[in-house]
Amino acid sequence: MNSGTHRWSVLPDTVLHWYCADDETLVYYEQAGTTHLLTATSAEALRFLEYNEANIGELVAVVSQTLTLDVDGDDEFFFLMEALVEQLQKLGLIEACAH
């Protein structure tokens, strides 16, 4: 699957609970009863996908703006985001949108 061309979001009816401290985040996925430790980048991506759909490029824009990262023209951050999205998918936290 090429995650870069898909749009992503959390699973329908997902309820997430957050705890942030010391530049790291814990998220509790209520339906699955699982707890995950996220980096700031992963956490911001998931926070956006909790209420929105987005492709990788849009996530790069949103996360870099939120974290005030200067990533203009930086392919590495795009690939990093692609890898993070795949990890979030493997954890069962997000899925590719149907359309």
Binding site: Y19, E24, L26, Y28, T35
Partner: peptide
Amino acid sequence: SRPEAAMQIAGNTFNYSRLGLQGF
């Protein structure tokens, strides 16, 4: 970090999963 410590503790509990959101 506190989140990392919390993960370590969660892995050393007997009833974290059973308590669900209350455990978190």
